[in-house]
Design a protein around this nucleic acid. Structure first.
Length: 199
DNA sequence: AACGGGATGGTT
DNA sequence: ACCATCCCGTTG
């Protein structure tokens, strides 16, 4: 029987949560539609000494939920889209893990509808893409994922062997470039990547 | 009130 | 390489 990840899972170090979320399911049940994917790429945004973390600059209306309970969704708008994070650590720190890519598992037809395209490789590769595919929109900001039936993480039934996890610099950030806080399944085709595919 | 920069993504 | 798009924090 697969189980919903609880608050304790998220109330740990941000880096550890980012790593441990790899291989878990992300599930959305909106209306009669269920979509599900395996988390294959995350990024940690730390409570201290991380200038790329939204909460590091200021505690404002936008970042308020990052200072709340672990396990709560932080959904923020960017470039007319949204990205989805889960808040980590003990309350009041201001940190979260960004979900950057999923491997689609269930509800692929609905994902295609929401994304308006057929190519399965492009459904959930990228933080804003997966939000659109899963139906995650701004009202999900502040939702407690441990106590929601609409959006939550789930432990896979069996050991869903996901490949080796690697780390790298985070994508798209303009500060704290040196921190290797992106985690991804190296062999997975749904992992996103820097635009510039330089070697 | 206005300004400018994004934890993006799609097109040229 | 370029830019559509729009929200939000900052500044005046």
């Amino acid at each position: 029987m697969s189980s919903k990840l609880q608050q304790e899972f998220f109330e740990r170090s941000t880096k550890r949560v980012a790593k441990n979320l790899i291989g878990k399911f992300l599930v959305s049940r909106i209306g009669s539609t269920e979509t599900r994917g395996i988390v294959v790429e995350t990024e940690a945004y730390l409570p201290l000494n991380d200038s790329a973390c939204h909460a590091a600059k200021s505690r404002t209306a936008r970042t308020e939920v990052m200072f709340g309970r672990a396990g709560v969704a932080y959904v923020y708008p960017i470039h007319a889209k949204v990205c989805f994070n889960v808040v980590t650590e003990v309350e009041g720190q201001g940190c979260a893990v960004l979900i950057r890519a999923l491997e689609p598992v269930d509800g692929i037809k609905e994902m295609k509808n929401r994304r308006g395209l057929e190519d399965i490789r492009r459904l959930t590769t990228g933080p804003a893409c997966l939000c659109q595919a899963m139906g995650i929109e701004r009202p999900f900001n502040g939702v407690d994922l441990a106590n929601s039936d609409e959006l939550f993480f789930q432990e896979p039934d069996e050991d869903s062997k996901v490949g080796a996890i690697k780390s790298s610099e985070r994508i798209g950030v303009t500060s704290a470039k040196d921190l290797k806080l992106r985690f991804y399944v190296a062999s997975n085709q749904y992992v996103s990547g820097p635009k510039r595919l330089r070697v």
